[in-house]
Amino acid sequence: MTAKKYKSLQEFYPYYLSEHQNTTSRVLHFIGTALVVVSLIGGLLFHDLRFILAVPFLGYGFAWVGHFFFEKNKPATFKYPGYSLASDFMLFWDLLNGKQSFKVK
């Protein structure tokens, strides 16, 4: 089965949200993205490459645990790496400002 071709991030984001319905998974995504941001800032502030090298492990580690153990699906990263990464940050921001909820109704 071939992957659907999304023409824009706006078109992709609803699909991304549909793959992130589990509360624990959303919390794990939020924590992972927050740690990515903190690690990037730490790397820049302290001029320490180890913070930057930790970024993929922090971001993907938390997200993939959410997908494999709680969502029971494959992360969108495998089919749509760019849109998925952007959507991670969009979900993080939407959760932070209350536009999305950790608990999906």
Rank of each mutant, 00 (worst) to 15 (best):
A63F: 12
L49H: 06
L58D: 04
V65P: 00
F69A: 10
F46R: 10
V37K: 04
H67T: 01
G43I: 05
E71Q: 09
G42I: 11
Y60A: 15
L91H: 02
H47T: 10
I52Y: 00
G43T: 10
W93A: 14
F92R: 14
K72G: 02
L91W: 06
L40E: 08
G59E: 07
A76R: 04
S87H: 02
V55G: 01
H47I: 15
F62H: 02
S87M: 01
N97Y: 03
S39R: 01
K103M: 15
F89G: 09
F70T: 03
Q100E: 11
S84D: 13
L49D: 08
S39I: 08
A63T: 12
E71H: 05
R50H: 07
D48L: 05
L58G: 01
S101R: 15
D48N: 13
F68G: 04
F51S: 00
A76V: 14
V36Q: 04
F51A: 02
L49C: 02
F68L: 15
I41G: 01
A86W: 10
F68T: 15
L53V: 09
L45P: 06
A54K: 03
F70C: 12
R50F: 00
L91I: 15
L85P: 06
D48A: 13
F92E: 10
F92Y: 06
A63L: 04
I41P: 03
G66Y: 10
F89N: 11
N73R: 05
G82R: 00
L40M: 12
A86Y: 09
A76L: 13
G43K: 00
S84W: 03
P56F: 00
D88V: 04
V65W: 01
P81Q: 01
A76K: 04
L44D: 07
S101M: 09
V37Q: 13
P75Q: 04
